[in-house]
Computed example of a mutant assay.
Amino acid sequence: MANLKELRSRITSVSSTMQITSAMKMVSAAKLSRAQDAIDAMRPYAEKLTELLQNLSASLGDEQGSKYSDQRELNNILIVAVSSNRGLAGAFNTNIIKAVKRLAATEYKGKNVEVMGLGKKANDILKKSFEIYKNNNAVYDDLNFEATSAIAEDLMLQFSEKKYDKIVIVYNQFKNAATQIVMTEQFLPIVPDENQEEKNTADYIFEPSKEEIVEELIPKSLKIHLYKALRDSFASEHGARMTAMHKATDNATELRDALKLSYNKARQASITNEILEIVGGAEALNK
């Protein structure tokens, strides 16, 4: 009978867990819909702005280059790791942590590598292996362009003051609810598009001047770049969590059904044993 009590307890526990994971799946699905709409609406603007900036930058001479295009010897590297503040999202955060460690161990081996955490999960793990420049977990409390702009401005300042020679962003790019692609993109210095010369360049009329327009566009483009990465990561997080909770619910359902089957078999065996004992006792009395 103790075995039956244990099985009943496990069935109740698994059923409770299944309800929680199912609810989390529905919440993530609702948030994913809004996050996906936001990134889908933003991508064309961000891509067009980057294309325009590369077109203009390619037409400027080296002597007219921006301070954000300064190519120098790589000694100090900053990796911006974009993760989430919460877990239960499958391999979403683990993939970012692995990508950062792989970059530091291969491409930037022997360099002074620091990390800026945009998200609690990556920061908590990476601070054990790297020097943390800043922790900006609060950016997800209200993800908006103004908050992201402040972070981007700080990164631009650190690069222009030569604290860092290169800044890269590692984040999850949203493809669909089941697929997130780990991206590593160079934030600073700005690198001109190598294929720009092969593309058809438009003939623009500049007012007031090409140089002034570029200087105005570069900070805005960098802010948009970071904001898009955060929006991509935000949508990817909810997609990953929805998928993880869906799998967890399915697994809990299978486990609950298996436990119910075991419980019914044990109960049937217990009842059969009781019947046999009663019959055996009755036969003993008749003799």
Rank of each mutant, 00 (worst) to 15 (best):
N123D: 14
Q268Y: 12
N112C: 08
N75P: 07
S209D: 02
R231L: 09
L56G: 06
P208M: 11
S16E: 12
T148N: 10
A58I: 04
A46I: 02
S66R: 06
Q196N: 13
M183Y: 06
I181N: 15
K121L: 15
S15D: 07
L143F: 01
I125Y: 03
A104S: 10
A91M: 12
M183I: 13
E197F: 02
K127P: 08
N85W: 07
Q36P: 00
T179Q: 10
N286I: 15
A105G: 11
K120I: 06
A282T: 13
F130P: 01
T12D: 14
I278N: 11
N264S: 10
N286F: 13
A29G: 13
I151F: 04
M245P: 07
I181K: 15
T148E: 01
K223I: 00
Y204T: 11
K31D: 09
N85L: 04
H238P: 12
S129C: 12
K260T: 07
N95Q: 10
N251A: 13
R34E: 05
I39C: 03
I39A: 00
K199Y: 01
E277T: 13
E283N: 15
K128V: 12
N135K: 14
P192C: 11
Y68G: 14
I205K: 15
S59F: 01
K163Q: 15
D257L: 04
L226S: 05
Y263D: 00
F234G: 00
A41P: 01
L230E: 02
R72N: 05
L103Y: 00
Q64S: 10
R231V: 02
N85S: 00
R10A: 05
S59Q: 08
T184I: 08
V100D: 00
E207H: 09
N135E: 15
D203S: 09
N137F: 01
S233P: 02
H225I: 01
Y204R: 10
Y108S: 12
F206M: 14
K162E: 05
F145Q: 15
A248D: 12
K111H: 06
T50D: 06
Q196W: 12
E194P: 11
E6Q: 14
S9P: 01
V14S: 08
L32S: 10
K5G: 11
K120F: 09
E185H: 11
S209A: 05
D232F: 00
M24G: 02
L222W: 03
F174A: 02
D141A: 09
S270Y: 13
E47I: 02
K5H: 06
E216S: 12
L188E: 02
N144C: 02
N200V: 10
K5Y: 04
A41S: 01
F145V: 10
A81Y: 01
E237W: 02
L230N: 00
K166I: 11
S149P: 00
Q180S: 15
I39R: 05
K127I: 13
Q54T: 08
T148P: 01
I96N: 10
T21I: 12
S13V: 05
A266G: 05
S270L: 09
A147N: 05
K98W: 05
L261C: 05
N75E: 14
E131L: 12
L230K: 11
N135C: 12
I132C: 03
N264M: 04
I151S: 03
N76L: 07
K111N: 09
D142T: 15
A150R: 09
G119Y: 06
